[in-house]
Amino acid sequence: MTDRDTILKTTDLTKRFGALTANDEISLAVERGEIRGIIGPNGSGKTTFFNTVTGFYEPDGGTVHFDGEEVTGWEPHRLARRGLGRTFQIVSPFKNMTVRQNMLAVQTDDGRSREEKRDRVGEILEFLEIDHIADNEARGMSGGQQKLLELGRVLMLDPDVVMLDEPAAGVNPALESRIMDHIHELNDDGTTFVVIEHDMHVMKTLADTVSVFDSGRHIAQGDFEEVSQDEAVREAYLGGTTAEDDEVPV
């Protein structure tokens, strides 16, 4: 992979909280147009990595490059406007606003007129199949609809890269399947995804490449089958015991 193909790259990215090193010199490169999965046991530093890359935490060392530009330490809103979108594990729509207003609250530098922005909102809501509740207050939405709204708000940024933190957590199988279909469709249109997910079935079907974190370190990378056979990965997940199952727990 050349640098020209790399859209998001971290080099020796480090984040400490007191004596705890939550991210320990993580170097990772995401290719333009891929779906990169990030897995690891609880506390392995996945969400900290997201927070440091997207500007919510100031790194203690290392760099972040996005689309050929160093963006280390940029404010989250600036990265969002630059085209790096993300979601959190726990969805949190603006509950006193309608679904449409939630989408219109997004600010970009694309120079769209008010009408163009409203049209774009309509397109995205239709794509996500929640256009029928566009004028409902977000406080009345189901958890699954809130997940879709969260994705919709990110899409309003017209992002080049979307970082999703457990998109399938807490949703029913039908909605999970819908969310995965949306991710695939968007990916086919050129959007790059970086996805944290604990559900290995989801990861297996979704990710082109999987990065494995353990104790704040990036210990392995490859396609799902490769990493599930990796000794270090099995050690991280199974604590060094010999498993009859030859994959990471699914």
């Binding site: 919510f56 809103h77 969002a80 959190f88 949190s92 509950k95 606003m97 609250a105 997004v106 708000r153």
Partner: peptide
Amino acid sequence: EDRTNARLMGINI
């Protein structure tokens, strides 16, 4: 309503 999410929405808080 939620300043963390507002930052994700491109809003300069």
